[in-house]
Design a binder for these strands. Structure first.
Lengths: 254, 254
DNA sequence: CGCATATTTGATAGATTTCAATTTATGTGG
DNA sequence: CCACATAAATTGAAATCTATCAAATATGCG
């Protein structure tokens, strides 16, 4: 269960190094992270709300979602995770999370013990900082979702969600884009505070407008500039660029 | 500008030690944090959206809010901060935040240089961890807000916001509670994805139901159990209890 | 006292939900 | 490869909540 990780951690390492500068040694430490992989069925809950966990998950394949339930049983999805993400990295410092995690389609995760994460975070301050920063970016996305759900129309909300996943998937290249998007309309509705019926109608409108088309677990963006404009989408909050010189360590000169 | 901090940091230290176990030395390091205090006028923006900052703020007095704007100029408040909070602690690892910060009433903040925060985080892993954890709890609150805005009625949303501030202010003691709540109806609306008019009508209903009453920058909770029930409020996400033995350090045995 | 801000009220329009039903995909076993 | 079962997508009509527009009243502050 040790060194298959070189393959497994690749996506996660890429996510980290997108925003944090890590030395080769530190990168190796990430790759050497132990863990057991598991296949999750569609819609299966793999971290229950309020469950206490001793490990965190790296998402290797498929999409997952953070979710909560209201007393009336209504579901709200509060984050979408794509391969390479670590949906519950935050459990490393807060093992008791009110939200749960579930698979959106079929997905596979690598369960990494907290002890291992804490060990490398303690040994390499730059890794601790990278983990911290990653959690902060997750929060930043949540704040943008609040703007999306609180203040935008249904149509803009749907468009914005698609834009975000496109950008995070690095799928945009020119005016068109096509990428994995294995969310059902019910799941999209739960992510956007809408009903599935309304999402359905909204999606048809977006298609009729020549902006975007969803089919069979794929999204086809037909006109990226127009869609981004319609969605009021500004990718800055995703923090996907990092200046090469801004290697930051907790101890300024160490 | 150095050691007035013993007083200034008191609230912040209390917030940290509520969720993280810090040794006396570490606590002293927090109290020794340098900083300049500043008075902020009502509604003044003290951290602009997308501004790059070299310091973070401890909120000493008054309420502040994190906010964003949509392209149409609509405002969404995505977090409320009360005295003792550090609204932009996350800027220590991500100096470029898409959200802005503004005062809700008059407030005073202590601006602490990132360099000082990074220095003590580097020197004391337990402090780095406490900072990380604090950011994670902020995110946890944001996730609950998504549930609130996405899936609850206007009335439950308003009630939930009031419950949250009551709990964070440690104001609840029995069935009744009274505490500072310097938010206007416009601000409440912006925090909940509603219009001020609707908030006004909702507040009147809540008052008529004998649940809660807002007046002159104060909130009076008339029937806490009923209000919490109506709001579907469960304080678990605020993580305000910590077991005495769960002192966690990044390096397991260090 | 008077201005600026905040709250309150009324009437109307509109977006979204709810309820009910149908059609279309998708996957699995025979 | 087809039939079946299940999940997902689609459509329609009516109900409801919330927003919008417009105006009046309170409240706080200098």
């Amino acid at each position: 269960m040790a060194s298959t990780s070189n393959t497994h951690c690749h996506g996660f390492l890429r996510r980290l190094t997108q925003r944090s500068n890590l030395s080769p040694v530190e990168q190796q430490a990430i790759c050497d992270l132990p863990g057991r992989s598991a296949k999750i069925r569609s819609n299966e809950v793999f971290v229950h709300p309020n469950e206490e966990v001793d490990h965190a998950c790296i998402l290797l394949e498929g999409f997952a979602a953070r979710f909560d339930h209201s007393a009336e049983g209504k579901r709200q999805i509060s984050a979408i995770y794509i391969p390479g993400d670590m949906p519950d990295l935050q459990s490393t410092v807060l093992s008791h999370s009110p939200s749960g995690l579930q698979a959106l389609g079929i997905c596979t995760v690598l369960r990494v013990p907290h002890s291992a994460l804490r060990a490398i975070a303690g040994r390499y301050p730059a890794i601790a900082e990278a983990f911290w920063r990653d959690c902060v970016i997750d929060a930043s996305i949540a704040f943008q979702w609040l703007l999306n759900i609180g203040r935008r129309t249904a149509s803009a909300r749907v468009a914005h969600l698609i834009c975000e996943i496109a950008a995070r998937s690095k799928a945009v290249d020119g005016a068109r884009a096509s990428f994995d998007f294995p969310m059902t309309q019910v799941q999209i509705a739960d992510a956007l505070g809408l009903t599935a019926i309304h999402v359905n109608r909204t999606l048809r409108t977006l298609r009729d407008q020549g902006l975007v088309q969803l089919k069979r677990n794929k999204a086809d963006i037909l006109d990226w500039p127009a869609l981004a404009e319609h969605a009021d989408f500004d990718p800055a909050y995703l923090q996907q660029k990092i200046g090469p010189q801004q290697r930051l360590t907790l101890v300024a000169g160490a």
